[in-house]
Nucleic acid binder design. Structure first.
Length: 566
RNA sequence: GUGCCCGUAGCUCAAUGGAUAGAGCAUCAGCCUUCUAAGCUGAGGGUUACUGGUUCGAGUCCAGUCGGGCAUACCA
């Protein structure tokens, strides 16, 4: 919602689109048409329909009770575009108005890419506002699995996208080292430790089976001998396991350039604040005051049936411990109290039921839940040689994220995780990701960048072209079809960022960059660069620089490297 | 049973309610004496799971049917 408004007004998107809006508004006014409809400028599906089009006549036809084509013709008569911008307008199809642009106009506009550089595509819409993106948030019960990686990369990209909009972004990892799962973890380590001490133990099926448990037990045995076998206390097992596992999680994330600014321990929500009550207790009392709390069966319940849900939900179990819901609500209260104006939660489809309760509770407590956006990613299956691998952390047969990175590299891991819509189940084809060839989208994108870098090296050596001081002054001599198409596509980059944010979907960036790479390769194939006449040569080098700029900016958002040579 | 996601070319996937539904892979046919062939060009391939509805217009929205995944805990 926050981004929809911005995008509809065309202020942050493609500079060409922003150009049209006031002229269309003027034309409507001159034609005596009053409307508050958003003026949508889009790129036609086919080149013969021109460079841009608007469906405004189609939108207005109904309320004005006119044939859309006739209406389009009437609006068109009132256009007053400046010299050297729009060559031709026409009406086509059911009533689209198509604009054909002067090539030089596009080429002059694409200079923005060079002058704005790293900040091309950015805008200060979120300036002065805090945003928090919560992602990964795996409890330290085991190494990260492939499935977790998808959410991690998704969250990281969303954070990158928000940074381009000027937000002060906090990347947060929420975890719990006090719950039942951690208890089981500690017990699992203890069992393996006792095995190390030479005892025979009946290892429960419900416990963590993975080899990493044995490794932790071994570490403890080397350090302490069998001394720990005497004590019934689990704390040393728990703490050691947590330390080692968290360390490994952070290392794995770091390999994918995923970092967090803050690690929020759920347990802090259980502790009373100075001279007061705990954040958990505060939530209970606040909900109670609104009449949504009841105690029965020895537990404390959140009366969600009052909100039309099928069942009430337990907030405090009969054991006296909170269920995960209570700290979750309290956690979100802290986000509001910390002053974030935008909160993005990234989690996997298995947590789908978690969010609605939190949302309802926050609403009851008077918080503006419109500031929260949830990105839920569907599951990942990996395939090797056509065989799919199923995973389960508990059984220890999970495909580990670390193994995947070892196998295909960090860039491919990241790109593959986000090159499909988060709503689709991801089929991670390991064979494809490993391929060092054009079939692999990672290489296709990076190759385009490396090719440009190579070009710039040669241009520097042979003709003393200085890529750093290029301004794009000479770009408007270019007028071939592929050059115009490429330049025009580069100007879409800001739109793509807006679109990614609107849908919390970096996948759109991958697809866009693929299109840019494709157009560049075509341009490179069709247009001689270094061998062209000096004016054309300079312009083509400048256009290549614009492409490199957009690729780099996009790679930064996706978090993949931009190799100078391959 | 109920809730959420998905169903589009042989395969993996795109497509703000807009024009003739697009890419890549695979298949077939071409392009290196020439700035990186890790590239480019062309061809074939579709009842958008099914049935209705809403409207100028539906892959997209609504209802239902069928199929797959996830969730339906006093686990997180």
């Amino acid at each position: 919602m926050l981004f929809q408004a911005a995008s509809k007004q065309c202020h942050n998107g493609n500079p060409m689109r922003a150009f049209f809006v006031p002229f269309i508004q003027d034309a409507l006014r001159s034609a005596g048409i009053e409307t508050d409809k958003d003026i949508l400028i889009e790129k036609p599906t086919e080149k013969k329909f021109g460079d841009f089009s608007t469906n405004i006549a189609l939108l207005l036809a109904k309320e004005l009770k006119k044939n859309p084509r006739t209406l389009a013709g009437e609006i068109m008569e009132h256009f007053a575009f400046p010299e050297g911008t729009v060559v031709k307008t026409d009406v086509a199809g059911p009533g689209f108005i198509n604009f054909h642009l002067e090539p030089a106009f596009i080429m002059r506009t694409v200079r923005d890419v060079l002058s704005e550089g790293e900040s091309f595509g950015s805008n200060p819409a979120g300036k002065g506002q805090g945003a928090i993106v919560e992602y990964v948030s795996a409890n330290p019960t085991g190494p990260l699995t492939v499935g977790r990686g998808r959410g991690g990369v998704l969250g990281d990209c969303i954070a990158n996208l928000l940074e381009t909009q000027g937000y002060d972004v906090t990347r947060e990892y929420y975890f719990n080292d006090a719950g039942r799962q951690m208890q089981i973890l500690a017990e699992s380590v203890r069992y393996r430790y006792l095995e190390q001490c030479g005892m025979t133990v009946d290892f429960p099926e419900s416990h963590y089976q993975g080899d990493y448990i044995r490794n932790i037990a071994e570490t403890l045995f080397i350090e302490h001998g069998d001394e720990l076998a005497k004590s019934e206390s689990l704390s040393v097992f728990k703490e050691t396991a947590e330390g080692i596992i968290f360390d490994s999680i952070r290392k794995t994330l770091a390999r994918l350039s995923i970092t967090h600014d803050s690690f929020f321990n759920e347990h802090t929500l259980y502790k009373a604040e100075e001279g007061g009550i705990s954040p958990n207790q505060a939530v209970i009392e606040a909900l109670d005051a609104k009449g949504f709390i009841s105690k029965f069966d020895n537990a404390t319940w959140f009366l969600t049936t009052k909100l039309g849900q099928e069942k009430d939900k337990v907030l405090i179990k009969s054991s006296g411990d909170p269920s995960y819901r209570l700290p979750d609500i309290a956690y979100h209260v802290t986000k509001f109290n910390r002053g974030f104006s935008l909160m993005v939660n990234v989690f996997g489809a298995d947590h789908i039921d978690e969010y609605p309760d939190v949302n309802e509770a926050l609403k009851i407590l008077g918080y503006d839940t419109g500031r929260i956006r949830v990105a839920i990613n569907q599951f990942v299956t990996t395939t090797v040689g056509g065989q799919t691998i199923k995973m389960s952390t508990r059984k220890g047969n999970a495909d580990l994220l670390d193994d995947l990175i070892d196998d295909v590299g960090a860039d491919a891991t990241r790109l593959f995780f986000i090159m499909r819509s988060k709503d689709s189940h991801l089929n991670f084809d390991i064979d494809l990701a490993k391929k060092q060839s054009k079939d692999n989208p990672v290489f296709y994108l990076q190759y385009a960048h490396a090719r440009i870098c190579s070009l710039m090296r040669m241009a520097g050596n042979e003709i003393g072209f200085n890529a750093d001081s290029a301004t794009g002054e000479g770009l408007d001599v270019l007028d071939s079809e592929v050059e115009i198409e490429l330049a025009s596509a580069l100007l879409d980059y800001p739109d793509v960022i807006q679109s990614c944010l609107r849908f919390l979907e970096p996948q759109k960036m991958v697809e866009y960059l693929h299109g840019i790479a494709e157009l560049f390769h075509k341009f490179y194939q069709e247009c001689p660069i270094l061998k062209a006449d000096p004016a054309i040569r300079t312009a083509r080098l400048e256009l290549s620089l614009c492409v490199r700029r957009v690729l780099r900016n996009g790679f930064t958002i996706l978090g993949i490297s931009a190799p100078e040579s391959m």
